[in-house]
Amino acid sequence: MALNTPQITPTKKITVRAIGEELPRGDYQRCPQCDMLFSLPEINSHQSAYCPRCQAKIRDGRDWSLTRLAAMAFTMLLLMPFAWGEPLLHIWLLGIRIDANVMQGIWQMTKQGDAITGSMVFFCVIGAPLILVTSIAYLWFGNRLGMNLRPVLLMLERLKEWVMLDIYLVGIGVASIKVQDYAHIQAGVGLFSFVALVILTTVTLSHLNVEELWERFYPQRPATRRDEKLRVCLGCHFTGYPDQRGRCPRCHIPLRLRRRHSLQKCWAALLASIVLLLPANLLPISIIYLNGGRQEDTILSGIMSLASSNIAVAGIVFIASILVPFTKVIVMFTLLLSIHFKCQQGLRTRILLLRMVTWIGRWSMLDLFVISLTMSLINRDQILAFTMGPAAFYFGAAVILTILAVEWLDSRLLWDAHESGNARFDD
């Protein structure tokens, strides 16, 4: 018995066209964080690309023209004298008006014999932002004059995390709450300039795509075929072959399989920071003279006294001054041990922890910024005066060393310790 099946006739004509040209192939790229070699397709503007294995951002879609970056830099340069030299806060102490600005706080630190601690604050609040705007201006002028731009481009990517104007702005709020127990506070004209400078700096850093600047100024022929001998440069993120001198053909720094002496430098910085954190938390970090009496505060006791007036601000200072430094030390110690013992479990967790400490590390400088600003506000000789204690130097040095330890660690070593050939990683 035959089955009668109805015929289905399409209502619209289906047209099949042959592909007349070869589909576009992607360029081969190595991930600078996990060293995976993959094919990167062509990316349009405002599109980002991520590593298929570790999800690290390979290409950032946010990109401004150099002219727009230069305009932002010149605007920031105009704001800087007002943000640093004009009063941020006014207080009335014992019937006398006192003005506080950024430069005055750094000068008070240096004047009291601790120039190293003052230079830490100076670099993060004044030096690094000033280098940022002058570097962008150098790129703008240098591109037109045919100057060598490689050193500036190499420095810009590392400079971003040292620009800490946003953290200093939080420190202004913390210092205001600490001082309000002794005097009446009012915002100064410099505060508005400083807030504007923070906003412009944040926007500029978020749109400063150094890798795209490398592509514009020093374009290189990408690798179009897969080759395990391809290496990625950690300076400019170019994937290719080393030249005859073993250097990256684009930025001219040595092109090595792994960062040289990464573990040794990381261990040295980490152990030194552990040693410095002990006096930083045991010795007094601030000293207040009130009517001839002397009151010393460690980091913890200062947080407890701050909690009596504002528990939320005390929580912020606790996280930045105690929780973050010790968390960074514990995480980095764990990561280094996992590399030495070739741990194969929990790779995803370790990668996330490394990215976390990379982002939060700079916030530990908050305590030094609060001390710097408070020193310029309260300084009335023996009637009422505020000065920093010996722990300030140890704390600042420990924070900087932990930042350097994270920067010096080559994250690809975590993958080397893991089993080879993993296309995915999980716990």
Rank of each mutant, 00 (worst) to 15 (best):
V121Q: 09
F318K: 05
L277W: 02
L230I: 13
S48C: 09
R260W: 09
L377T: 09
Q112L: 07
P6T: 04
A83M: 03
D60S: 09
C54A: 00
S48P: 03
P219D: 12
P325R: 00
R412M: 01
P390R: 07
I383S: 02
W267P: 13
R17H: 06
E296D: 10
F238I: 07
E296C: 07
Q180K: 08
T334A: 10
F82S: 03
P52N: 06
E161N: 10
F192R: 08
S135K: 02
V189R: 12
R247A: 12
K111N: 11
A183Y: 05
R355Y: 15
V133K: 05
I8W: 06
A398Q: 05
I136F: 14
A175Y: 01
I288S: 01
L413M: 12
F238Y: 12
I106H: 05
C236S: 01
F393W: 06
C266L: 07
E419A: 02
A223R: 12
T75Y: 02
S193M: 02
G105I: 01
G173S: 06
S411P: 08
L409R: 02
F194P: 01
T110E: 14
I98V: 05
F38E: 04
M120N: 02
P254E: 11
V370K: 00
G146Q: 05
F123V: 02
A391P: 01
L197T: 10
E22R: 06
R256D: 13
L78Y: 04
E42H: 05
V125D: 07
L234Q: 11
L336K: 05
G346W: 14
L270T: 12
G26H: 11
L336R: 01
A307Y: 12
Y289Q: 02
R53V: 07
I400W: 07
L93Y: 01
A56C: 06
Q264W: 03
V121M: 13
G85L: 04
L377V: 07
V170L: 07
H184F: 13
Q33V: 11
R245L: 12
V198M: 12
M1V: 01
R256N: 10
I311P: 15
A405L: 02
S119D: 10
A128F: 00
R150P: 01
Y50F: 12
R250I: 10
P52Q: 04
M109N: 05
G302M: 01
L306C: 02
G173C: 10
L290F: 04
Q112N: 08
F123C: 01
G61W: 14
R412V: 00
G127T: 09
E407P: 02
T239R: 04
L413V: 10
L377N: 01
P222A: 13
Q186A: 11
P32Q: 06
L156Q: 14
F194C: 11
V329K: 08
N101Q: 01
L282V: 12
A128D: 02
V152C: 10
I288Q: 00
G396A: 06
E215H: 14
L230N: 14
I172P: 01
V399R: 00
Y394H: 09
C31G: 00
R59W: 07
S321R: 02
R348D: 12
I403F: 03
L263I: 11
S193L: 02
R355L: 14
L347R: 07
C34T: 00
T224N: 13
I378A: 01
G105A: 13
N422I: 11
I303T: 14
P41S: 05
G142Y: 02
S273G: 11
G302F: 00
F82L: 07
P41Y: 06
Q295P: 05
L139M: 05
R259P: 09
G173L: 11
S65T: 06
N379Y: 02
I253W: 02
T358N: 13
A183D: 00
P87I: 08
I400L: 05
D427V: 12
L347T: 13
T117Q: 02
